[in-house]
């Protein structure tokens, strides 16, 4: 009986991972081929495998490879950050964007840019400020939500923090627009257009470190979500679990905000899609959510470019598309909670 249930769980996980990996690969190739100049699927694969070397196509493909890698890494990080933060707050409505973590990260970055404009040359330093901002935002939201006791109070506190800090970052970013050389809307609502080739190694390293670190605390998270008593009696330290998970969340969110700006709702939608696919055990949920997060952002990036190439206008920010995909999840979850 139990063995059968366990086997089913494993089978579901294996199948989902296979399906998700395949989808992500196909979507990434599609993402490289779509744009103002579209490149055929075969050309993309040939170039990636180093078979053909058409110089004109190579330039375009290289640029899009950078975009696509940034989308995959930022998406995976946000997917994992979403799972972690839902776990430590024991709240299915939690997400880095909704809890105000992303926007405080951006506020701190824009403040740092005003005080020291030369900062823009070092993405690593920007990431550091972004990480500190994320951590600060999380603590702030937690403090504010302690005043109320229901799960919704955390979300309401998050909305308050988001509103304040996105207002602040609006003003600050408006002031430093000349330094940034890119429209600040892109930072506020996310975009991969400004990602540079030099960003990719830092981005890869940080997300690999963050995601692997999160895989080390999956069991303590599994015990933690049922209550501190369960955590303690199974030999874990609940405070240490919260602290580690919050730090990882802040690193992952901070990094993605520093490079691609704020992409909302991925951290909410991705864990819930995965809960449906592989269940709620964090050992399975985390890797699956990394893949789904990546898929969502790559997909949104494709949609953004497809719209732009059809309309002939500039690109929409990514956050617009992820918002349209993700916000219905929030609406559904809130309605479910209110009804209870």
């Amino acid at each position: 009986m139990a063995l059968q249930t366990y086997r089913n769980l494993m089978r579901r996980f294996t199948l989902s991972m296979f399906f998700l990996t395949t989808s992500l690969t196909l979507l990434s190739i599609l993402s490289i081929s779509v744009g103002v100049v579209s490149v055929g699927f075969k050309d993309v694969v040939d170039h990636l495998l180093g078979i053909s070397s058409h110089t004109f196509l190579k330039g375009i493909i290289d640029l899009r490879v950078i975009r696509t890698s940034a989308s995959v890494l930022a998406g995976a990080s946000l997917g994992v950050a979403g799972v972690l933060i839902q776990g430590i707050t024991r709240n299915p409505l939690a997400e880095p964007y909704i809890l105000g973590i992303s926007s405080t990260a951006l506020s701190v970055v824009s403040l740092a840019l005003i005080l020291n404009p030369s900062l823009i040359n070092s993405r690593t330093e920007v990431m550091l400020y972004s990480f500190l901002g994320a951590l600060l935002g999380f603590l702030f939201t937690l403090m504010l939500s302690r005043l109320g006791s229901s799960g919704l109070s955390l979300v309401l506190a998050g909305i308050a923090v988001t509103s304040i800090s996105s207002g602040i970052s609006h003003i600050l970013l408006y002031l430093v627009q000349s330094v940034l050389r890119i429209p600040y809307v892109y930072l506020l609502m996310g975009s991969t257009t400004s990602v540079l080739k030099a960003d990719i190694p830092t981005l890869t390293l940080t997300s690999i470190i963050g995601i692997s670190a999160s895989l080390l605390i999956v069991k303590s998270l599994n015990a933690y979500i049922y209550g501190d008593e369960y955590s303690r009696q199974l030999g874990f330290n609940p405070r240490l679990t919260i602290l580690t998970a919050a730090t990882i969340t802040s690193i992952l969110t901070g990094m993605s905000v520093a490079v691609v700006g704020i992409i909302g709702f991925v951290g909410l939608a991705s864990p819930h899609i995965c809960r449906y696919l592989v269940g709620n055990d964090h050992r399975f949920l985390l890797p699956a959510s990394a893949l789904v997060g990546a898929i969502l952002v790559v997909l949104s990036d494709i949609i953004v470019r497809a719209i732009s190439s059809v309309s002939g206008l500039g690109e929409l920010p990514l956050g617009v598309v992820t918002g349209i995909i993700g916000a219905p999840f929030l609406a559904y979850l809130v309605l479910k909670r209110v009804r209870e």
């Binding site: 299915p92 979500i225 809960r275 709620n280």
Partner: peptide, 9 residues
Amino acid sequence: QVYRVLPST
């Protein structure tokens, strides 16, 4: 008691 707000089987 057990927290059951996050879904779990």
